[in-house]
Design a protein around this nucleic acid. Sequence first.
DNA 1: CGCATTTGACCCGCGC
DNA 2: GCGCGGGTCAAATGCG
Length: 99
Amino acid sequence: MESMASLETIIIDEEQVQEQNIALASSNSLVVIPEDDYKWNKYGQRYIKSLQKNRSYFRCVYNICKARKKVDWPPNEPNNLDISYEGDHNHGALAADHS
DNA sequence: CGCATTTGACCCGCGC
DNA sequence: GCGCGGGTCAAATGCG
């Protein structure tokens, strides 16, 4: 469906993404988000007409903490991510570490 | 099997 | 009063 104009320029190394960033993508929109010590569950994704940007909503997967993460980025340039962390965690840093 | 993720619909608030 | 936008939640599905 996509004409694939010049999206080649935004190709990112999958390995690099897997090493230091979290790649939240389907196939079209590649979003590289710098993870933290917290885990988040995506609870919605919407395209903001007003800003002409995509907005992803993430929430902390912990003790109902009010911490929320919002990520906005232009559908044309996933490299221009705009991440906003708001709220406060009621627990220490979550850890995806299994050791 | 569990978890994570995605999409849709619904709701609410605000603006005009 | 109505419309639109934005935001959230829920459910379902897929994959590991």
